[in-house]
Design a protein around this nucleic acid. Structure first.
Length: 390
RNA sequence: GGGUAGUUAGCGAAGUGGCCAAACGCAUCUGACUGUAAAUCAGACGACUCCGUCUUCGGGGGUUCGAAUCCCUCACUGCCCA
């Protein structure tokens, strides 16, 4: 579905700088050129990334000239946002492989036939010493240090490496090199994106707009992050995705509705209030349909009801054959099914009463289970099921 | 260049010769409750052939019956002075 210009500039957008109205006017007069920059590190894409990608695609759908920029030049520094660890150097082959993987995940959200791909290494690697001096002369150290995360690190006594303060300049130079009208990014990129605005004006006397998209919280209401384990990956299986959305905090729902659906927000808010569970089911179906299919969404819903509402055994589950008539329970969990990372972990789950076979609880870690050609259902924890046979 | 403080498990952070596989918080896992929400309660959370053994406290080397803790050395970082 193609949204109107006003919807694209409003819904799921945190900020349009310097002004929404002037950008809307430009978009009505001609096709604009815009871009989103991505890191070529081996990222596992989440709904957090999808916020950006979805917005990018909306511009493509409106027929604008959309560029996806691979940061194979800026990756030498690594955006200092968040982490302070030094990035490893990536070879061209690794970058290519990473992008292929990235593309596979992003295909669910982006239509690559409508998007042009560029690499900023093409111009950044070509900068000479003189170019770098000229680039750096455009700003003061104080301006660079204004960035919130540098201030945070200063306060926390954390290191800021010399090359890191160049990141905004290099990202900003991308805007100069491509002469874009607009850049998209998360609100955490505002500083970098505005640097591009400054540089573009200084180098080419050209105006550039910036759209900052919201950073969504993870399912537990905190910042979506690997270390919290609260993210939803784009290549998540339908059932997992559905379950994760259902386990999200109620308070996060409305934002997700705003960003990932076209639902009327007043209606969504009313539904959340009257029946949070139904609202969540609706949201989960929406998102699974978007990233998988309507059929997957329906079957994920059914699976969810069976497993968690009725506490019954799901219909499909992985099947394992152990190649023998009996096996130690720990080996079965760890080696055969891969449900635990180590024997110790499996032992713990067993001792804590989290394991059952055909509904029969197994609490002795030394137990030998007898298997036949008839499949039995192994349950480990709340959500791991397997069908096991000899 | 001088001074000083630091580097501990996934993260943050205690511990300064044996009681340390290492407090505590977060994350994670299990059980109870439930809307796989929130809140809460109970427990686990290096590995293994698990009531015992083995490998961990920036790297390397020493001292000692015994070291995360003491010494030497290398690497990295913060802060102050210049």
């Amino acid at each position: 579905m193609t949204l109107s210009v006003d919807q694209v500039l409003t819904r799921g957008v945190a900020e349009v700088l310097p002004k929404k109205e002037t950008l809307a006017k430009l978009m009505s007069e001609r096709k604009i050129r815009l871009y989103l920059g991505i890191d070529p590190t081996g990222a596992h894409l989440t709904l957090g990334h999808a916020v950006q990608l979805r917005k990018l695609q909306q511009f493509a759908d409106l027929g604008h000239e959309v560029i996806l920029l691979i940061g194979n030049g800026t990756v030498r520094i690594g955006d200092p946002t968040g982490k302070d660890s030094t990035r490893p150097m990536l070879t061209d082959e690794e970058i290519k492989a990473n992008f292929e993987d990235w593309k596979r995940q992003a295909e669910k959200v982006l239509d690559f036939s409508t998007i042009e791909i560029k690499y900023n290494g093409d111009w950044l690697d070509a900068l000479t010493y003189a170019d770098m001096v000229k680039l750096m002369a455009n700003v003061t150290v104080q301006q660079l240090m204004e960035r919130d995360m540098f201030q945070d690190r200063l306060k926390a006594g954390k290191p800021i490496h010399g090359h890191e303060i160049m990141y905004p300049l290099l990202q900003g130079y991308d805007s100069v090199a491509m002469e874009v009208d607009l850049e998209l990014g998360g609100t955490d990129q505002t500083f970098n994106m505005l640097m591009g605005r400054t540089l573009l004006r200084q180098y080419k006397q050209k105006e550039k707009w910036v759209i900052a998209n919201p950073i969504i919280n993870g399912t537990d209401g905190r910042k979506m992050s690997k270390s919290y384990g609260n993210y939803i990956a784009l290549d998540e299986a339908p059932n997992e995705m559905f379950g994760k959305i259902m386990s999200m905090k109620d308070a996060e729902m409305l934002t997700y509705f705003e960003i990932f659906t076209t639902e009327d927000l007043a209606d969504a808010a009313a539904l959340i209030k009257s029946s949070p569970r139904d609202a969540k089911v609706k949201l989960a179906k929406h998102i699974v349909t978007w990233l998988h299919s309507a059929a997957d969404a329906e079957s994920a819903y059914q699976d969810f009801v069976t497993k968690f509402v009725k506490h019954e055994v799901p219909t499909d589950m992985p099947a394992f054959s152990v190649g023998g008539s009996s096996i130690g329970i720990l080996d079965l969990i760890t080696k055969t099914c891969g449900f635990a990372a180590s024997n110790g972990e499996a032992r713990r789950i067993v001792e804590q009463g989290g394991v059952s076979l055909d509904g029969e609880k197994i609490e002795d870690p030394k137990a030998e289970v007898v298997l036949s050609s008839e499949s039995q259902v192994l349950k480990v924890g709340k959500r791991k099921f397997a069908s096991v046979t000899s």
